[in-house]
């Protein structure tokens, strides 16, 4: 296993952000699903060596981030897209990625420039590389942020809400880039979009109030809602989770309304059933 957390906890003052997290991630894409405030970002920041856990054991790429030498080795093989990149807007896209490449210690000017061009091309920004970040749209800036995380083909890529602000085409391109990297490396992405999980992830970890409430494959997550998703002609207003679908019927999660028929569940149904919103 490349990366393992054992009974990891983190508190900020009186608030417990994470409690007893035990999980392993390996090659492929692992999705972190959870509501806002569930602890996804804290977990990713711990895995990115931004924060250290208050309790528990952490091994990243087989190394211990508490040890200064190990931490350096981890950071050399780490790609990180924080939730808010907050970059300096006076930079152009090229300058920003070049700046991070220098901090990534990509030595040799030509090697660095060629790597900067490669990652900007990977996110489809070759034509825009000399535009200032302040004049770019939210989606374009998100792609610049993503580009920097791909520098040096990291063995561990951590992405916090990577598809926020991307249009459908940009999201498909993002999935191509990430799935390509995940063939050989470990990618962990946090999201509240079940679409991303369904399209990309091998493994899913669901977080709720700082604890893991589910871990398994995407198919396992879908299966949790099997037998609990119903289609009816009329809404059951007593049910907590229902909505009108495009074909005019009403989808319910939980108890069957009168005259309803079972429907095959989706990732979203699995997630909603699990988090108890649909019951």
């Amino acid at each position: 296993m490349t990366t393992r957390l054992t009974a990891v906890s983190k508190r900020f003052g009186r608030t417990t952000a994470l409690r007893g997290i035990t999980m392993e991630v390996d090659r492929g894409v692992t999705g972190l699903l959870g509501a806002n405030g569930a602890g996804k970002t804290t977990l990713l920041r711990i895995m990115a060596t931004v924060l250290s856990p208050d309790e528990g054991e952490l091994r990243l790429l087989g190394r211990n981030p508490r040890d200064a030498g190990d931490r350096l080795q981890i950071r050399r093989q780490l790609g990180y897209l924080p939730q808010q990149t907050g970059f300096y807007e006076g930079f152009t896209a090229y300058e920003f990625v070049d700046y991070v490449a220098i901090l990534q210690e990509i030595t040799g000017t030509r090697q660095r420039r060629s790597e900067v061009r490669r990652v900007l091309e990977a996110v489809g920004l070759t034509d825009q590389m000399h535009r200032h970040l302040r004049s770019m749209s939210g989606g374009q800036r998100q792609r610049v942020a993503l580009a920097q995380s791909l520098l040096g083909r990291p063995r561990l890529l951590l992405l916090d809400e990577p598809t926020v602000g991307l249009d459908p085409l940009e999201r498909i391109r993002f999935r191509q880039v990430v799935s390509e990297l995940a063939r050989e490396h470990t990618v962990v992405l946090s999201t509240h979009l079940t679409d991303d999980v369904a399209a990309l992830c091998d493994q899913v970890v669901v977080l709720g109030h700082g604890e893991i409430t589910f871990t398994g494959t995407v198919a396992d997550l879908v299966t949790t809602a099997a037998g609990h998703v119903w289609l009816a002609d009329m809404p059951d207003v007593a049910a907590a989770g229902w909505w009108r679908t495009g074909d005019g019927r009403y989808r319910h999660i939980g108890e069957p309304p009168r005259g309803a028929r079972l429907a095959p569940p989706t990732v979203e149904d699995g997630y909603m059933y699990l988090t108890g919103r649909g019951t």
Partner: peptide
């Protein structure tokens, strides 16, 4: 740092910077 939080998790030594 112009790179925000990204600048924290890079191998370049913080002290040197």
């Amino acid at each position: 740092d112009p790179a925000g939080e990204v600048g924290v998790v890079v191998p370049f030594p913080a002290f040197r910077l």
